[in-house]
Design a protein around this nucleic acid. Structure first.
Length: 866
RNA sequence: GGGCGGUUAGCUCAGUGGUAGAGCACUUCGUUCACACCGAAGGGGUCACAGGUUCAAGUCCUGUACCGCCCACCA
């Protein structure tokens, strides 16, 4: 007997087991002889992060893989940690300082960085606590942070090496500039948007007064920095005019008309104004033609001295004034509405300004080569594999990587300058001084490195690199990277570059890209849109296991996943079903049962289904098809174990003579099921496993072994038993026709055909007292044919002949239509000659069966009308 | 502009060329006997559209439409 409650109460169970696993040391890799390792270094979340639905999918996936491998006997390391997240963190702390009436600028670099560390200590690991609530079995003793001393050492090491190999250089380039945060930002930290803007048409007159060129621009203020107007060399409108001089309106400067392939002759007048310092394309044009690069916007987004009378204005004010002035001076031809693509900074919400500035770059072509090779060779495998092509396309057209950021929070670039301005990359000032020799080191570079530079080292810096640690030897390369498709380039590709360059070995074997979690109506989940769902709220209400199942049961090779809270109900119900079915078994089993000598067909049926479910679930886990695993487990448990096997066993369990066999079968099935379900629902399964009366049980389900030596699948028994189930369903339907409620016993049912020893299944599941072979003579009855059996249900009271005729007519129609379709096909010689013989044979047999059934139905209808 | 996904029941989605499936929702019936977070029985689909290949197409090929994502220098 058991005192388990009739409902699964998640919150108590989950925290209890998490604590017990942890104190038993199960989150750390075991070290048994001959064990394979399985390693994941989790994508380090930002220290500013808090759990959203994407996390609630990403991290449990890794936990599922880890738990699965543990059950398979591997030594599993899932190494957690966090990313210092330069911009995100710096802006969070800045915001707090502003609230407190101060600012980073007031504190100065050193004090500010101290403040950030304080902040991290206090509230930087919220998200890691939330991973625990999700049940993630990560090795917290190995947790890493991208700004740890040892980690920082690794970052500098790579930088210095690349600097010395000439892979890192400093250069002037147009970068994404965030005027609010006053730093360059990476593409990933920007968002592409289209806004309703204006297209301004401006006259640029020839200096000799011989005419003018019409220029269209969406950013009129940038004309202050114009150095040329470009047209396509083959544009007939400008033949012979190339090289002429134009007068730049408002600025009283002369600029040349140049020919360059960049302008599209189809667009507008075909002429483009060239502002090299404020547009990446214009910059390239300027480079080709050796043009100057006047910078007209400062880091805060204000017009510089180069902007003449407009100096000091913000970019918005400048635009307004310039448009006014153009108009009053007669240069403005027209203004049209125009959809303008812009970039917005995700951190500040500010419009990104393309700005020429001095930045550090990493040459990418050379580093990308081994990555391309590894992907093409299948050395690193993408799942779904379509992402391999996406990655390759990017790598083959790669551009140099801007790695400097004008921030304080991060890895300060280890470049030191001597008094003559020479640059040295070194671990510290002393080392730099040693390299400089007689010249004195006077300053260090102010910028810090892009956060992705340090996270690119994640799979090996977390294991102790550059030291040859035991962990590094044992766990590198890792097995799989589980991530979001959005950071394929920025992170995944970089890790591969860095891993292949520094360790000459792929950082991971597989890259599994999981689906993006969307709202139920297909919109993005975002806090600002108010469309986000808080995973913690769901965990509190129904538990982490149900949340995990709800998400994982929709996760396969798909690109998106639509998630609404409604869906969590199914998951909760399934948890409860598992709970109660196990409870039922516990109520019916006292001691560890012994394996019986002989089994009945239903027993063999269930065990065969179990064996095939195990195959399916194992293949699904290995192939990252969690949806498939969930479905196989759900069907086995609910539709097969609960709906049929348990129901059939009830009578057997009630009889002391027959109960031993179903007891053993039930426990075998439940134990195997809990193990297979455990990766997805770790807490619930652990709790139930602990109650199972098994001999030789593991201390924890989590550290138990995957189901072994299950009986073999037996397809013949499956077919045989399922035929009887089909007959049973038909009998129940027949009962329903005469309004007999389910489970209400009826006296007698007659059957014709071979039940193959499964009489008890049909009798108990059809809720019949007595099953008789043969047909009822001289008794009114209604009949059906299913699963190769004829079933006759005697009617005591009156049959409603109309209703019964209608039922039989409908059945005759259905069977007739099916038969007709088959006969047509079989009459076609093309089919019988060309189709595979087994298909033809099967269809012939089916047609025969249908013909027989149709005859019976028609006979019954005839009988009724007599 | 280029590339990649998707379009199957009211909803969310499965579906190895061989008679269209699941879960939820819906309808009817049923609560002492594991679970009403349950059980039983039902209704519901010209598989986006148009061509083609095939004895046979939701499935393979070509094209079109719509939705979504990524990349790209259209001022």
């Amino acid at each position: 007997m058991t005192e388990l409650p009739t409902r699964y109460l998640a919150s108590e169970t989950e925290s209890k087991w998490y604590a017990r696993w942890e104190s038993a040391g199960l989150f750390q890799p075991s070290d048994l002889p001959g064990q394979k390792t399985f390693t994941i270094t989790i994508p380090p979340p930002n220290i500013t992060g808090s759990l959203h639905m994407g996390h609630a999918l990403c991290y449990p996936i890794q936990d599922v893989l880890g738990r699965y491998r543990r059950l398979q006997g591997d030594s599993v390391l899932i190494l957690p940690g966090q990313d210092h997240a330069g911009i995100a963190t710096q802006s969070v702390v800045e915001k707090q300082l502003r609230k407190a009436g101060t600012s980073g600028a007031q504190l100065g670099r050193e004090k500010f960085v101290e403040k950030v560390w304080e902040w991290r200590k206090e509230s930087g690991d919220t998200i890691l606590r939330q991973f625990r609530a999700l049940g993630c079995a990560f090795d917290w003793s190995r947790s890493r942070f991208t700004l740890d001393d040892r980690y920082a050492q690794a970052v500098l090491e790579v930088f210095i090496d690349w600097f010395e190999r000439g892979l890192i250089y400093k250069g002037l380039r147009v970068v994404n500039w965030d005027p609010a945060l006053q730093t360059s930002v990476s593409d990933i930290e920007t968002e592409r948007k289209t806004i309703n803007g204006k297209l301004y048409y401006v006259r640029y007159p020839y200096a000799d007064g011989s005419g003018e060129i019409l220029i269209a621009t969406t950013r009129p203020e940038t004309m202050l920095g114009d150095v040329a107007v470009a047209v396509h060399p083959s544009d007939a409108r400008y033949t012979g005019l190339i090289g002429k001089t134009l007068r730049l309106p408002l600025m009283d400067r002369e600029i040349p008309l140049i020919a360059d392939p960049y302008p599209d002759p189809e667009f507008g007048s075909g002429a483009v104004k060239i502002t090299p310092a404020h547009d990446a394309n214009d910059f390239e044009v300027g480079q080709r033609h050796g043009l100057e690069q006047p910078i007209i916007l400062d880091p805060r987004g204000r017009i510089t001295e180069a902007g003449g009378v407009y100096a000091g204005l913000s970019r918005e004010e400048a635009r307004k004034r310039i448009v006014q002035d153009l108009e009053s001076e007669g240069y403005l031809v027209k203004i049209e509405d125009h959809a303008i693509p812009i970039l917005v900074s995700e951190r500040s919400g500010e419009i990104i300004e393309p700005l020429l500035s001095e930045q550090w770059f990493v040459r990418q072509t050379e580093l990308a080569k081994p990555v391309i090779q590894a992907i093409e060779d299948g050395d690193v495998r993408f799942v779904p594999d379509r992402y391999a092509r996406v990655a390759l396309d990017w790598l083959e057209n790669i551009r140099d990587w801007c790695v400097s950021r004008q921030l304080w929070w991060g890895h300060r670039i280890p470049v030191y300058y001597d008094e003559a301005g020479n640059a040295y990359a070194a671990l510290n000032e002393e080392a730099a001084q040693a390299k400089a020799g007689a010249l004195r080191i006077v300053r260090q570079e102010e910028d810090v490195l892009d956060t992705w530079f340090s996270s690119g080292l994640w799979p090996f810096a977390t294991l102790g690199w550059p030291e040859e640690t035991d962990d590094l030897k044992r766990f590198y390369p890792t097995d799989v990277l589980v991530t979001d498709r959005n950071i394929l380039y920025l992170w995944v590709a970089r890790m591969m570059m860095m891993g292949l360059d520094k360790l000459h070995e792929r950082p991971f074997r597989d890259v599994y890209i999981y689906a993006t979690v969307l709202t139920e109506d297909g919109r993005r989940m975002s806090k600002s849109l108010g469309t986000g769902i808080d995973p913690m709220g769901i965990i509190e209400r129904i538990g982490a296991d149900a949340l995990r199942y709800a998400l994982l049961s929709q996760t396969g090779m798909n690109q998106d996943l639509r998630f609404g809270e409604r869906r969590t109900e199914d998951a909760r119900n399934f948890c409860n079903k598992i709970w109660n079915a196990t409870r039922f078994v516990l109520m019916n089993v006292e001691a560890p049962p012994v394996r019986p000598e002989s089994l009945e067909k239903v027993d063999r049926w269930l065990l065969s289904r179990l064996a095939r479910t195990e195959q399916a679930v194992r293949a699904a886990y290995e192939g990252y098809d969690f949806q498939e695993a969930c479905q196989a487990l759900y069907r086995f448990f609910w539709s097969e174990l609960c709906d049929w096997y348990i129901e059939v066993s009830k009578a057997r369990l009630a009889d002391p003579e027959t109960r031993a066999v179903p007891q053993w079968v039930l426990l075998t099935a439940i134990e195997a099921f809990l193990k297979m379900m455990h990766p997805i629902m770790p807490h619930l399964t652990e709790e139930l496993y602990q109650h199972l009366p098994l001999s030789g049980k593991a201390e924890f389900l989590m550290s138990a072994a995957w189901p072994e030596s299950l009986p073999e699948a037996d397809l013949e028994v499956e077919t045989e038993v399922e035929r009887v189930f089909e007959a049973t369903r038909s009998l129940r339907a027949l009962r329903a026709e005469i309004d007999l409620p389910a489970m209400k016993p009826i006296d007698t049912v007659y059957f014709e055909g071979d039940l193959g020893g499964l009489e008890e299944v049909l009798r108990t599941q059809g809720w019949v007292q007595q099953l008789r072979a043969g047909r009822p003579e001289g008794i009114k009855s209604i009949s059906t044919t299913a699963g190769g059996l004829d079933l006759h249900l005697p009617i005591e009271g009156l049959i409603d002949p109309e209703k019964e005729t209608a039922r039989l007519t409908k059945e005759a129609e259905k069977v007739g239509a099916e038969l007709q379709k088959l006969e047509q096909r079989l009459a076609n010689p093309q089919f019988t000659e060309r189709a595979k013989p087994e298909i033809v044979a099967r269809e012939r047999a089916q047609a025969e069966e249908l013909r027989l059934r149709l005859e019976k139905v028609q006979a019954r209808r005839q009988l009724l009308s007599d």
